[in-house]
């Protein structure tokens, strides 16, 4: 991943450099946050918090990693905070599923698929999404980053501030847990 945004310009508070940063990373950060929290409004709020933190704390960025890695780390931390608050029942919001988001005109499908197949895939995603909600917070984040967003183990390790082996273990256990949950769903709803 190439960082084209000048960190020096950001550190001087240049609005142009910040706008460039928004252009380059808003989709990536929003998609990552959305895939973890799965709520549109909260994903937008968290994305705004991420960019606000970046703007106010860029002076502390030492340049020892890519700015994208630093931003992903902030985003993951904010998501973890949200998930903790959510698990304590302190936050609530409108739950917008992938299906609903996909149906909006702003996100047209990039490739054609038969409507029947498309519908079935949507259903699978919803089933998987529900199963993923039962994973631990770290398993869910690591699995989402790897499986949905295509981050490498190394990138996830940097973003989550864990070792690469811990990430491998988290994803392995997440996959095992999902297999168990989906097997139970299959027995109950499909193979009756």
């Amino acid at each position: 991943m190439i960082d084209v945004v000048s960190v020096t310009a950001l550190q001087t508070g240049s609005p142009e450099a910040f706008a460039l940063l928004v252009d380059q990373y808003s989709d990536k950060i929003y998609r990552l946050v959305y895939s973890i929290v799965q709520r549109q409004e909260e994903a937008e709020d968290i994305t705004q918090e991420v960019f606000t933190t970046v703007y106010t704390s860029v002076d502390r960025f030492k340049g020892d990693a890519l700015i994208s890695t630093w931003m992903y780390r902030i985003a993951v931390n904010k998501c973890q905070e949200f998930l903790r608050k959510q698990s304590r029942g302190k936050r609530s919001g409108k739950h917008v599923t992938y299906e609903q988001v996909q149906g909006t005109p702003q996100q047209p499908s990039s490739s054609y698929m038969h409507p029947g197949m498309e519908l079935e895939k949507k259903e699978r995603r919803i089933i998987l999404s529900n199963a993923m909600n039962q994973l631990t917070e770290q398993q869910r984040i690591a699995f989402t980053m790897n499986k949905q967003e295509g981050f490498s183990y190394e990138e996830i390790a940097q973003a989550m501030n864990l070792s690469k082996s811990s990430i491998e273990s988290l994803i392995f256990r997440a996959r095992k847990q999902l297999q168990v949950l989906l097997a139970a769903y299959y027995d109950e709803h499909i193979n009756r």
Partner: peptide, 25 residues
């Protein structure tokens, strides 16, 4: 089902959100 997320990258930040982000400074 586990692989149904593969390549699912269609969600993008709305223009309204991008404008909000650009107005942070």
């Amino acid at each position: 089902t586990i692989n149904s997320l593969d390549g699912f990258k269609q969600v993008t930040a709305s223009d309204a959100l991008k404008n909000r982000l650009k107005s942070i400074p």
